[in-house]
Amino acid sequence: MTADCLSETFQALADPTRRAILARLASGEASVSDLAAPFDMSLPAISRHLKVLERAGLIERGRQAQWRPCRLNGEGLKPVFDWVAEYSRFWEQSFDRLEAYLEEIQSKDASDEQH
């Protein structure tokens, strides 16, 4: 399974405000004040959330001094989506075995009843 690098990503995602910010950025880049508008939160508080997202590699910020637009970083999101493939394999194979096991114990019960 994947290494520790996912922890920072997940920690960044484990907050409803930050998830809402990412959802907003999915429809295009935005300034800090654009992003702050839907929240009852100060600009410094929003900036702190943006720093967490930036550190986790989930967003990038423009370099213009006054208007530093934020945008999603697809590369940063990729590990989150790769995670799914790994667990999918684990569970599918477990379900195959569960299916066979249930069949086995039921046919055993049935033959026990006949004797």
């Binding site: 959802a23 999915a26 697809g74 999101l77 990729k78 989506f81």
Partner: peptide
Amino acid sequence: EGWGASLERLGDFV
């Protein structure tokens, strides 16, 4: 609560 809904558009983005 909230997790799926708030990220709906991210999947499309990726």
